[in-house]
Each structure stands twice: as C-alpha cells, then as structure tokens.
Amino acid sequence: MEKLKNLINHARQGNQDAFAELVAFYEDKVYGLSYSLTKNQVDAQDLAQEVFLQAYLAIRNFRGEADFGTWLHRITVNLWLNNHHKKKIKPVFNLDAPLETEEGKMLRLLPDSNDGPEEITVQKEFQRQVKAELKNLPPAQQTVLILREVEGYSYIEIAQILNCSVGTVRSRLNRARQCLQKKLRDLANNEGERGK
C-alpha cells in the first residue's frame, strides 16, 4: 500500500518509471473492466491504453481521495460511455448477439467444447445469454450493472465513479436489473414458442 502511494507520488512528479510500474500493477484491472464493457479484445485494448494515457496526462489532478484503481475505472467508464455515443450509429455485429429472425430472437452461440454434466452446460449457456443481453441494455445501465455485479463496487463507490448520487445508483441498478430480466424472459418465451 505504501509502495503504491510512493509510486503515485513519483508518477505525479512526472516519473515515467513509476508510472510504468503503476500500469503493470493495474493493467489487468483496467483491461478487465474494458473487456467487460466492450466485449472484444481489440476495443478493450484500445480503451485500456487510452485510459492509461489519459491517466498519465491527468495524474497531477489525482488527489488521492479515492483509490487509484477506482480512479482508473472512473476514467475507463467515462471514456467508454463517451466513445459509445460516437459509435452508436455504426452497425455492430457480434457473434454472441442473438440473431433476429422472423420467428423472434435466436441465440447464435458457439457450442461449448467442454464436455461435462448437462447442468454445467445449461448454466454456462445461461451466463452467455445474460452477458449477451447485457450488451443490449442502454450504456448507462450496462455500466452500473458491470460496476456492481462484475467489479463488486459498493453503491457509494459507483456513485463516485459515475459522479452521481447514491439514490441515482440505486434506481439505475433497479431499472437495469428489471430491464435485463425482461429481456431474458422475452428471449426464453421466444425460444419456448419456437420449440413448440
């Protein structure tokens, strides 16, 4: 902990070696969130690199009030949300996204190559469905869910990252969960109807 503080202080004074050590320490954390948000390696790498570049340029403004990792995640989320708006108009194609057919949505999942009990396969497929549907939520809802469920941040930390009130976090999470639940139910109903 003390070592990290020292590194941050040195990096704030423009020491590149110290910043490089910070990058090495936090790269998995930042890349992990970047991947959760972008869902592909190329964009995740671009985003994570951009995060560290922005962090380097702004590290003097880091006052140490929040955890450095949380601060990096804050940059990650905001860069992603900002870029997401720019990319909005572009048609995005994802192998995991459900396929829209005349009979409703159909999952285009690559079959699991691991042999195992059927239950595990069902669970894994459900996880994939959940993550695929998560991508279809509005960016703000995706973000709050990822920060809470995947990254395990508290409401207060999420509020700090998103620069909003705890009440907003609570209501946004509620809406996001309900929305995701509805999407998954609709998907299950469509599959059920097709199976008949």
């Binding site: 490089a20 990058v23 790269e27 690199q49 560290f52």
Partner: peptide
C-alpha cells in the same frame, strides 16, 4: 441473473501491454 453476471471472465491484459502504453 445476478450470479451469472458475477462470473467474471478472467481476461488478463495482453502481453507487453505496459510497454505499449509507455
């Protein structure tokens, strides 16, 4: 759903990431 979301994909940063950033 919450449990499914909490399954974190272990995605380490690519090789030589730090060098690229620097």
């Amino acid at each position: 759903i919450s449990a499914a979301l909490q399954v974190k994909e272990n995605k380490p940063a690519p090789a030589e990431f730090t060098q690229k950033v620097m």
